[in-house]
């Protein structure tokens, strides 16, 4: 019961903040609402018994990504946009048709879809006994070690790419 109330509160807030993100004319405000939304999602992760993911969500998204966004907004000195400009008007009629269709179709699939997958070994009792973060770490560094390495390499490459792209060449 408590869980249901929590889901509806966090879920509703996340939807609300997400809508605010995309309908704010001031990019700084968008970024702030994005933080709010990410925190709601982190709370949902907690509801899903994944405290580690919630922590990562807060660290990476709130601590790194949104900060990066804000940083860029300040560097580029972006101001609040005029009302007539911030929406792409040519896209609007199409989007108004496509978005509800998308929600309808995906929602239909989500509600009507039947999962045929068998339940795995990581039951709630098991996670309480073994510790959910510990179990995640074990799986991550054994079964998924290769994708993990690939992703870490990808992150490294992205870092270098970002640095190289933003370097001012030939100006010194």
């Amino acid at each position: 019961m408590v869980e249901a109330i929590a889901f509806y509160v966090f879920g509703g807030l996340s939807v609300l903040t997400a809508l605010l993100v995309i309908f704010q004319r001031d990019p700084v405000r968008s970024a702030i609402y994005l933080v709010a939304c990410f925190i709601q999602v982190a709370a949902l992760f907690v509801l899903l018994r994944s405290p580690f993911l919630a922590a990562v969500q807060v660290f990476v998204y709130v601590g790194a990504v949104v900060v990066l966004f804000l940083f860029v907004i300040m560097v580029l000195e972006l101001k609040k946009e005029r009302f007539s400009e911030y929406i792409h008007r040519g896209q609007r009629p199409w989007a108004l048709f496509i978005i509800p269709a998308l929600i309808g179709e995906v929602g239909y699939l989500a509600v009507k879809g039947k999962s045929k997958a068998s339940l795995g070994p990581y039951s709630e009792e098991f996670l309480v006994k073994q510790g959910s973060t510990e179990s995640l770490g074990k799986v991550l560094f054994t079964k998924y070690i290769f994708p993990f390495e690939v992703v870490s390499l990808l992150l490294l490459v992205a870092l270098m790419g970002a640095i190289i792209l933003t370097m001012k060449r030939g100006k010194e």
């Binding site: 896209q91 199409w94 496509i98 269709a101 998308l102 179709e105 995906v106």
Partner: peptide
């Protein structure tokens, strides 16, 4: 964004 629109439209049609 028009490309993105076409892409999402294509997804909608495929899902349909």
């Amino acid at each position: 964004q028009e490309y993105a629109l076409l892409m999402v439209g294509g997804v909608v049609i495929l899902l349909f």
